[in-house]
Write a protein that binds this DNA or RNA. Structure first.
Lengths: 146, 146
DNA sequence: CCTACAGTCTACAGCGACTGTAGGGGCAAG
DNA sequence: CTTGCCCCTACAGTCGCTGTAGACTGTAGG
């Protein structure tokens, strides 16, 4: 199998067809050869690039980071520290979100466990949502992405 | 201060002016009175509604859930268990994301700590991204939102 | 050969929850 | 009157895709 279609690449790389086309449209995948009728044809290198992207995405790297990592990879001899910086930044990000989510979890748990049924009027969960004070999650930093 | 402008409401509720207008546009805030010149004018009840929304959002509830919670609140006498269900679902969601992020964190940590500098060619981080096996985060469930 | 059906193509709209921009009008103080 | 901030509408952009519409292609069976 020298050249494969986008569907075959999709299976080989574990990425949906539409997503591959999307990656191409944002310049992550590069334009492939085309058959006479205009269908995309990929070689084995495409599978590598695709898995690289998927691995990075699975690890939660944002697209920009993936882009940079790919650039670094194609510049052989470039310093590993650049990669390290990107990875560490991402790790920081992940840890930040982790602690936000942990705070959220304990707050939700507390709210739910303090509620003993009955009508909404006496519901502790509702009370917590209505009450202006008494809120641990009052960080003013909204929990955002990932 | 019987009636306040959107800017004053914004400060009172800790929500940006644009966001308040957005909430209005999606039907969460209801259309306020207007001054002769067309400026929005809010009463104290608006502050309550806005803080309710903000608290729910701070706790990570998605908009749909916020909408339902608000509906439940305005039906006095409705059963608290509906609130409970929404909150528990959200808690489950939070816990799911927590465990995904935890997996991510340890994977990233492992990757970074195994890298000892040098060129990209020998970089462990890059190796991990290139290698098809050897990947804990290979869950095929991408880490998504929040 | 014909038909069915799966796969592929382009182009564009939609998701969530906002944020930013452009281009204007209003309002109080100096 | 002018400065400067606030307010208005309407729409585009963010991120990372996913879904839709409508047309074409490739393949397997009859």
């Amino acid at each position: 199998m020298r050249q494969m279609t986008i569907g075959q690449l999709s299976k080989a790389g574990g990425v949906k067809v539409t997503t591959i086309r999307y990656y191409e449209s944002i310049g992550l995948m590069g334009e492939p050869d085309r058959s006479e009728s205009g269908q995309r044809l990929y070689g084995d290198d495409a599978v590598h690039r695709l898995s690289f992207i998927r691995h990075a995405r699975d690890l939660g790297f944002p697209m920009n980071a993936v882009r940079e990592l790919m650039k670094l990879q194609t510049e052989p001899g470039s310093d590993c520290s650049a990669v390290d910086v990107i990875a560490r930044e991402h790790l920081n990000d992940v840890r930040k979100r982790l602690s936000q989510l942990e705070a959220l979890e304990s707050e939700l748990k507390r709210m739910i466990s303090s509620c003993e049924g009955g009508e909404v009027g006496e519901c502790r969960v509702m009370a917590a949502l209505n009450d202006h004070s008494d809120c641990i999650a009052e960080t003013h930093e909204r929990v955002t992405a990932l």
